[in-house]
Amino acid sequence: MSDMLHQIEPMIPALRRYARSLVRNRAAADDLVQDCLERAVSHWDQRRDTGSPKSWLFAILHNLAVNQFRSVSARIQHVAIDEAGEHEIGQNADQEQKLMYQDVLAKLARLPDEQRAVLLLVAVEDLSYAEAAKVLNIPVGTVMSRLSRARERLQQELERPADHQQRNVVQLRSKP
């Protein structure tokens, strides 16, 4: 038994490194190494090569990982409804977010260049009024007034229905 431990123990760090590179998760890799070591200890007398067990241990680890990949991909993940979070149950459709994003970009593009530039520098790039004034080579007061007008105009644009929504409206009934 002590001979087996002396041969296996020095290889554990290398097995852990290999397992981590395979599964890319520390906890899962440690579980995989533990399963490998358990199998190696229980089948120690069945190994063919009586020399260094290095290749034998790595083969066990690799085969366990392959079997784990196969079983995970073939198995459907079941989660109890009480334990499931919002992410497991459902998620918002990305299409709607993309359409809203495109709509905001289109409405932002309708702003006058000087208002759009100030709005982007202050609201998106998080520059201070003084920094934006320096970038645009205008007074700070001008930045503040342009920003105010840009926000107001963008708000008005966002409150109006999108162009594609107006065009895609279909009347199901004719009005009497």
Rank of each mutant, 00 (worst) to 15 (best):
I81V: 13
N67E: 09
L136D: 06
L5E: 15
R70P: 02
A19I: 09
A84L: 10
R17M: 06
C36P: 03
R116D: 06
A19Q: 09
L127G: 00
G90P: 05
A162M: 07
E152R: 15
A14W: 01
R48D: 08
L22F: 10
Q156T: 15
D126Q: 14
M100P: 00
S128E: 05
V104T: 12
D82V: 02
Q165G: 02
E152V: 12
G85W: 02
L15R: 07
D163K: 05
G51V: 08
I60N: 04
C36I: 03
A132E: 02
R47A: 05
I8K: 13
R20L: 01
A133V: 03
L64D: 00
L127H: 13
W44I: 09
D31Y: 00
I76Y: 00
V66A: 10
E96A: 09
D103F: 01
M11D: 04
Q34C: 05
V170S: 12
H43S: 11
L121V: 05
V124Y: 13
D30F: 06
A132H: 08
L32I: 02
R146L: 10
V118C: 08
V135C: 05
A59N: 09
G141Y: 03
V122Q: 06
R16N: 10
S73V: 03
N92P: 02
A27Y: 14
G90K: 06
R149P: 01
M144Y: 09
A117S: 00
S2F: 09
Q115D: 14
D30C: 03
H164D: 15
D163R: 04
K134V: 01
E157N: 15
A93H: 12
R17T: 12
Q77H: 10
V124Q: 14
A130C: 07
D45G: 03
R20S: 01
A162W: 04
I76G: 01
R153W: 07
E131W: 03
R153A: 10
S55G: 02
A27K: 14
S145I: 04
K98L: 12
A80E: 04
D126K: 14
R167K: 15
D49T: 08
L154D: 01
A19S: 12
L121R: 11
W44Q: 11
G141D: 10
S2L: 11
R20I: 04
K134Q: 14
A106F: 07
W44K: 07
V72Y: 12
Y18L: 03
A150I: 09
L105M: 13
A84F: 11
L99F: 03
L119M: 10
P10D: 14
Q115R: 13
A14C: 01
P13H: 00
A123P: 02
P139A: 14
Y101M: 05
V169N: 05
I12V: 15
K134L: 05
E83L: 10
D126R: 14
R149Y: 04
L64E: 02
W56Y: 05
Q68D: 11
S2N: 14
S52E: 12
H62F: 06
K175W: 13
N67H: 11
R16I: 07
N63H: 14
D113G: 01
P112A: 08
R110D: 15
A29H: 09
L172Y: 15
E131T: 07
V118D: 10
K98V: 11
E114L: 06
A59R: 12
A40L: 02
N168K: 12
L120W: 03
Q166F: 09
P10N: 14
E96I: 05
Q7S: 11
C36L: 04
E131L: 04
L5W: 12
